[in-house]
Design a protein around this nucleic acid. Structure first.
Lengths: 324, 324
DNA sequence: CTGAAAGCGCTTACAG
DNA sequence: CTGAAAGCGCTTACAG
């Protein structure tokens, strides 16, 4: 690997001059610049990022912390982030916490030790400790997916989304409505989406029976389990089942298909978050599209404005839309 | 950010000693070690990776080069890689080439300038130039997905997989067989899978009409287009359509559904590569499972053996299996 | 317009 | 068992 010294001596200049042409900084005579560029060209020299980073405390690397690496949400988020970051010459250092909270905070220190220029964290819950560690690292950052007060934040309006979806169903004349949700540990998906559904039902004076207000996890299997509970609750079939996520809806569909209950004729399914899966699997799915890629882009943009020196905290709410 | 010097002075030792306890190298008296560890604990000191990397030429970072960032294949591959690499303390630097060949070679130099300890490249085609650049960088590396002679390589046996699948269909009594493939620029998926299908048909003395030997791209839309061509070829319906990828199979299914041709009753669908999508969408899909995550793990392991100093070139063939 | 020198934060022979 | 010193490859005041 060539170094700046070799380039300098081959070009007959000091390494200071080489550095100047590399960074387009300070004055360099045209003649010197050309000699240097020629040598760089010939040798295929690429400056050591480690040395630059040690010196400048910058790295052109952004850490992206994910709770799970292999989900459609994660990969769409990373895609959006990468689209805007790559255009500005940044690379992504991936951290998979595997839902471990310790790994989350630990990884933040590690990222800092690598002089990353910024951190984007996809959150699964709201935590004071995480917020503190994030602030302590003193690295520009943005949190995606859960509301963190006084931080750069990219979120969806989960409450309104769930409420709109539910309202739409009520408008369409549905009265017997069941809900497949997730636990309250997840604020956005657990608390807010359930809250939106309940609020819409209340406004319309529709009862949500306890047995039809299910709490599960994020996987397809859980949707099947929940659907089973609802069907076996002894309250008859609901007109429509609203699922907090599209994977839950897919699970519900699988159970209904298995029981030969026709979708959408006997039971209509509604979900949130357009996975490719649900789009092809479930007939007449009514769903809320959360444009994850756009959230990724916004997160990257918010990060860039911080890196570039602006420091006004801001929350970006990505708008959703209803799809039939 | 604390530095090694501050730790040293607070602990009343030289930075040499601090470095020794950090790296568990050389002799350190128990007393000194404890003082140092205490100070590290108190200050939350984390050594600068930039400085370490400049000095040691190592970084505990592995570059992962992907043709597309947001596909199920990519994310499963990365998951497998991360599972074994994270356990050894490595992090992943992600590079998305967006199918650009220039970005591919360019990114290799960039990764080298970051002192990555290794590179895993998910290839979409076989190229001498890429192979040369890869060798030039002189960084441990492994190529996944396409056969690269004389390199560390993780591949599937696409020819055999396609042949087995086709044989199975022939065994089951199917004779009118059509094929939805992709272009030959992709060696593994284009050339080899088609080769396997054709070989099985030849062995059984079954003709593959030109009109039923379609070449498209990797998306669902392309499967629809191909299916249309096959149906409209004027040769009647095939008994079974073999798709080179599961996404093509999904496209074919969509077209058939649209035309109210029943699957699997009128036309059976077979695919390769178990996407979650196809599993839920297509009834009675016969498919070849390529365990991508396992390929990722193997790639990471092959990389680690290189990093740890072993230098015997080897190709790992990940075995597939037939799923019904 | 140009270069000598200092310094970023580490590790590693080397000497004791 | 311990530390002083050199050096990794850059950038950046500073002086000319």
């Amino acid at each position: 690997m060539a170094t700046i010294n070799e380039i300098a001596s081959k070009a007959g200049v000091s390494r200071t001059t080489v550095s100047r042409v590399l960074n387009d900084s300070g004055y360099v005579s045209e003649a010197a610049r050309l000699r240097v560029l020629k040598v760089i060209e010939e040798t295929g020299y690429v400056p050591s990022e480690s040395a630059k980073s040690l010196r400048t405390k910058k790295s052109k690397v952004v850490g992206v912390v994910l709770p799970k690496i292999s989900t459609e949400t994660s990969s769409r988020l990373v895609k959006g982030i990468d689209d805007v970051l790559a255009a500005k010459g940044y690379q992504i250092l991936l951290v998979n916490t595997n839902l471990s909270i310790e790994k989350e905070t630990e990884s933040l220190r590690l990222l800092k030790s690598r002089n990353v220029d910024g951190i984007i964290l996809s959150a699964t819950h709201v935590s004071n400790e995480l917020q503190n560690v994030l602030k302590e690292t003193n690295v520009p950052n943005v949190v995606v997916g859960q509301p963190y007060p006084e931080m750069y934040n990219v979120v969806f309006d989960d409450f309104s989304a769930a409420k709109e979806l539910t309202n739409k169903l009520i408008e369409n004349g549905h009265k017997k409505i069941a809900y497949l949700g997730v636990a309250d540990t997840d604020y956005s998906v657990g608390v807010m989406r359930r809250g939106g559904v309940r609020s819409a039902l209340e406004d319309a004076n529709i009862q949500l029976p306890l047995e039809w207000d299910w709490s599960g996890t994020f996987d397809i299997k859980s949707g099947q389990d929940g659907m089973k509970v609802i069907i076996e609750a002894g309250l008859g079939h609901p007109d429509v089942v609203i699922a907090a996520t599209d994977r839950l809806a897919v699970g519900a569909f699988e159970y209904l298909k298995h029981k030969q209950i026709e979708v959408p004729k006997e039971v209509l399914l509604a979900g949130m978050g357009t996975s490719e899966l649900s789009r092809y699997v479930i007939p007449s799915l009514l769903t809320i599209d959360f444009p994850i890629e756009e959230a990724g882009k916004s997160a990257a943009e918010l990060l860039l404005t911080q890196i570039e020196g602006k420091k006004t905290i801001s929350t970006k709410v990505i708008s959703h839309r209803l799809l039939e």
